[in-house]
Design a protein around this nucleic acid. Structure first.
Length: 928
RNA sequence: AGUCUCUUAGCUCAGUUGGUAGAGCAUUACCUUGACAAGGUAGGGGUCAGCAGUUCGAGUCUGCUAGAGACUACCA
């Protein structure tokens, strides 16, 4: 069989995904081992409005690598996919569409029709991201795909809401909330971001004190809110204002008089020491207002224009227009003290960047006291465990300790409508259905709450609602039957015990094993899943959390549309291939941010091509039925025991591949993906391609069956280990290996059609570690490298074959003798003379290794000056190292206190250096 | 303001209980060697941001300084 000369990712990518999916390889049911341990991951559901970005690609790569790795090990794996209804995002898309196509507003078509449009939008555009995930090679079980607004997930939402309400963990109340005037909805604290503005102003307003000619100066960044002031507060201990406490202020621009009050909240040292109090527009002022029983005067509409309470002069004005007008009016009245430039951080809406207005509003909240304790208790036991642990473990715990109540209502139409109904008197009835609510109300006419729930409310249930939990008290959780059981029923095997109940997904797959996600939603999502899963299922949602870093643009800034520094994963797939992009992403240290660079992906594109070509070489010579036969009964022990594998290079590569396998598994176990990638990269390229294939070329080309079989086993093992990162390339190649078949699958998958994704993942075998072989091989490699160095430094063409002399101790002599052919081949030498002492003419280039003195007679070719420089350079280098060691070893403190092993190690090295330096010095003298 | 992270070769980054500084790319020289020029061979290049400390020994631990960044809170 002959492969194309270069790897073409496109064709491999088109060849396999559909077959994998249609064969049911992604579903846990493919696993035929009834005792298989489960391994489960739920995907952080991307927004239905979303399309694949680099952050997804990174996280999906990690989740897929873990899933494929565990699946190959024989676990019953499930990676569950799905999407999130993304309240505000979808709503905005539909509003835009409506405006563009029909010049209508949502109110023109009504809530019901709007809902239909939103669903239609979801149907039409919502699968963009799922199609892109197929391109990525994500081995998710599509048969279990979920959407946060699926009927059963919505039922779960309503039941959770009702339960929490009954227990008093959900309440409705008047609080200062974050209001986005553009989206016209309330936002949770976590949906508000900060933006620093340098052009802020701090305005000092003078308020006249009634019955005096005094004024009191307050400073504000939002002058328009003075229209809603209901007091001025000072610190009780502030001598400047003590005499004014209790007096009234004639609030300018209004007809109102407001009191001067004393409150500890005011810091006498800060600003003027006097603070205007606007209880309906500021959280701190709200608290002050509560303490002093102040009126709460809301002076804005929901679109942030001023309302009638702001006075006729201001009613209808936008908040910023009103702000300018207030300042202007104060100036006219001579009550404007000054306006200072002031750098200010403003709260802005995470999505639309509109400045958020804190206002007093009636909303639904989740009380966080008990919720926090649920999560905190687990957090103290390091559940979940974060990777990387620093800083997330601590940040997570600290955040929980300072948690505030969660605003869960949203003034939107797209989402889970709050299951609360009101009668004509405003009494509230919370129930999962309208009928139930009606029953509770005694049959009155009810109107459902118009708000929907925060998208993160349903996301918080994702860990268990996706597994069929609905919270229905009678029906319990739906039972998913095993494929086997379904077949029994279909076949009508009447005596099968119908009462045998296979475990539901909920029982089987929860807790999930790991959650892979970004830093930004640890609080927003991870914490809430922990709380709600514990609360409603009594289990951990997941054991581990892998926190991925941010893939930054080439400019080192987060990728964003406005910056235009985004890199599209799909473009990378087209340019370098899916596998190269995946393994590059996996090569980023867990949790670390990284600047995107194409060169990194190119490196792995080249790696893919290297793998392709190494396989190409092996297969060119493997069309051989004997090799086929032996491959199917292959295992490492078998290869190692084969007398034909007792050559040094064979023992060495078997040891190397075993060590690599053990290390790769360990790295994956601890979520050190970059470590696994690095191990595989260097094993494959350096050990396997550069040394092993080069050494074995002749045998392979000659069609030696044992050699071919062995090299294909190494290749097979390598491809399996690479598969979690490079699924397409490895499948494409593995299926071409002689003898690859379902017989090589993990025992759990013997029935399935052949695929590397079901092959056993190499675990490595410590019994195959061969320290002697590794030591001997490096002695041989050292000699070859030295000879190559001589050739390169002396600038001797490879066309010129020379004789190499080696002097060494007797046991090393026999090692070199045994590997004569290998040394000659890779050093491109003609003769090898091994003896106790070097016996060479003066016109020779010389070198030394730990185990050998080397000389290459170069009569007529040697440039003595070059050789002197070469030797001198080596002496300098070694001497520097020796000087360091001498110093260390002559330090009595070191020798006494350092571990004896370490001291001995350095002494050995010192002896080696001494020997090598002496040898090189002799060589140098011999030239003179 | 508080908490935390980062600063290692020209560039992008590894470096897991403190014990001779690594990779990829770039760079230099040579090589159309029968898998691969997306390749091979051999090189060059770092006082690990700075200062001080602990230690026989510090990229690694502690403190401070300077830059960069993250998060949380507040900002009248």
């Amino acid at each position: 069989m002959e492969l194309a000369k270069a790897y073409d990712p496109k064709s491999a990518e088109e060849n396999h995904y559909k077959r994998w999916e249609e064969s049911g390889f992604f579903a846990p049911e493919i696993n035929q081992n009834p005792n298989a341990v489960k391994y489960s991951i739920v995907i952080p559901p991307p927004n239905v409005t979303g399309s694949l970005h680099m952050g997804h690609a990174l996280q999906h790569t990690i989740m897929d690598a873990l899933t494929r790795w565990k699946r190959m090990q024989g676990y019953r794996t499930l990676w569950l996919p799905g999407t999130d209804h993304a309240g505000i995002s979808v709503q905005r898309k539909v509003v835009e569409q409506l405006k563009k196509d029909e010049h209508k507003k949502p109110l023109d078509i009504g809530r019901e029709e709007f809902g239909k449009r939103a669903w239609a939008w979801k149907e039409q555009y919502g699968n963009t991201i799922t199609e892109q995930m197929r391109r990525e090679g994500a081995s998710v079980d599509w048969s279990r795909q979920r959407f946060t607004m699926d009927a059963d997930l919505s039922l779960a939402v309503r039941n959770v809401f009702c339960k929490l309400y009954e227990e008093g963990w959900i309440y409705r109340g008047l609080r200062i909330v974050n209001w986005c005037p553009k989206d016209k909805t309330v936002l949770s604290d976590l949906e508000v971001k900060e933006e620093t503005r340098k052009d802020g102003k701090l305005t000092y307003l003078k308020y006249p004190v009634v019955g005096t000619d005094l004024t009191i100066t307050v400073a504000t960044t939002r002058p328009e809110t003075m229209l809603g002031d209901t007091a001025v507060a000072v610190n009780a201990g502030d001598e400047r204002y003590k005499h004014l406490i209790g007096k009234m202020i004639a609030l300018p621009l209004t007809e109102r008089e407001i009191p001067i009050i004393a409150d500890d909240y005011v810091d006498a040292e800060f600003g003027t020491g006097a603070v205007k109090i606007t209880p309906a527009h500021d959280p701190n002022d709200y608290l002050v207002g509560e303490r002093h029983n102040l009126e709460q005067l809301l002076v804005m509409n929901e679109d942030a224009t001023m309302n009638s309470l702001a006075g006729p002069e201001f009613e209808g004005l936008d908040r910023f227009v009103a702000r300018a007008k207030v300042v202007e009016e104060f100036e006219k009245l001579g009550l404007l003290e000054k306006v200072e430039d002031y750098e200010i951080t403003l709260p802005v809406c995470e999505r639309c960047k509109t400045i958020v207005e804190p206002i007093l509003s009636d909303q639904w909240f989740v009380k966080m006291d008990e919720m926090r304790d649920l999560a905190l208790e687990m957090a103290k036991e390091n559940v979940p465990h974060f990777s990387p642990e620093v800083p997330h473990q601590k940040v997570y715990t600290n955040w929980l300790e300072n948690l505030k109540d969660w605003t869960i209502s949203r003034q939107l139409w797209w989402g889970h409508q709050i299951p609360a109904w009101y009668d004509a008197d405003g009494n509230v009835f919370v129930a999962a259905t309208e009928e139930e609510a009606k029953g509770k109300s005694g049959g009155n006419d009810l109107k459902q709450d118009q708000d929907v729930l925060d998208t993160w409310f349903s996301s918080g249930l994702w860990a268990f609602s996706t597994f069929g939990w609905t919270g229905e008290r009678s029906a319990d959780t739906p039972v998913r039957m095993s494929a086997e059981h379904e077949n029994d029923l279909a076949a009508g095997s009447g005596d099968a015990d119908k009462s045998v109940r296979t475990p539901s997904d909920l029982e089987t797959f929860l807790p999930t094993d790991v959650l892979v996600t970004g830093r930004d939603i640890i609080f927003l999502w991870v914490s809430r899943m922990m709380m709600l899963t514990k609360k409603f299922v009594g289990k951990r949602a997941f054991d581990d959390v892998v926190v991925t870093g941010t893939v930054l643009g080439k400019d080192g800034k987060p990728m964003s549309k406005t910056r235009g520094n985004g890199v599209d994963p799909l473009e990378m797939f087209d340019k370098f291939g899916v596998d190269a992009t995946r393994i590059y992403l996996a090569s980023i240290a867990t949790g670390a941010d990284i600047k995107w660079n194409d060169v990194g992906v190119e490196t792995y594109r080249n790696f893919a091509n290297k793998i392709w070509n190494a396989t190409r070489f092996c297969l060119m010579n493997a069309d051989n039925s004997d090799a086929n036969a032996s491959l199917t009964e292959f295992d490492g022990q078998h290869v190692a025991n084969d007398p034909a594998s007792h050559a040094l290079a064979d023992r060495w590569i078997i040891s190397r591949v075993s060590k690599t396998a053990v290390a790769v598994n360990k790295a994956l176990d601890t979520y050190q993906f970059h470590e696994a990638v690095s191990l595989l990269y260097h094993f494959f390229w350096d050990d396997f391609c550069d040394w092993y294939i080069e050494l074995k070329k002749d045998e392979i080309t000659a069609g030696d069956v044992a050699a071919t079989t062995r090299i294909i086993w190494i290749l097979d093992t390598s491809l399996r280990m690479l598969h979690p990162f490079m699924p397409y390339l490895t499948e494409e190649l593995w299926l071409k290996l002689p003898g690859s078949s379902a017989e090589l699958h993990n025992a759990a998958y013997r029935e399935a059609d052949a695929s590397i994704m079901l092959a056993d993942f190499p675990l490595g075998d410590v019994k195959l570690f061969d320290e002697a072989a590794e030591k001997e091989m490096s002695a041989v490699i050292d000699v070859i490298k030295k000879v190559r160095n001589i050739r390169a430094e002396m600038n001797i063409s490879t066309a010129i074959k020379f004789t190499v002399h080696i002097a060494a101790l007797p046991e090393m002599q026999s090692l070199f003798e045994a590997n004569k052919a290998q040394i000659l081949k890779l050093a491109k030498a003609e003769n090898l003379i091994i003896s106790d002492e070097l016996d060479v003419p003066r016109a020779s280039a010389k070198a030394v290794t730990n185990d050998a003195r080397i000389a290459v007679p170069l009569e007529g070719l040697i440039d003595f000056e070059v050789e002197r420089t070469r030797l001198a350079n080596q002496i300098t280098k070694l001497t520097e190292e020796k000087t360091r060691l001498d110093g260390q070893l002559s330090n009595a403190n070191f020798v006494d206190r350092a571990p004896a092993e370490k001291v001995q190690e350095l002494r050995d090295r010192q002896a080696e250096l001494l020997h090598q330096i002496e040898t090189l010095n002799n060589n140098l003298e011999a030239l003179n």
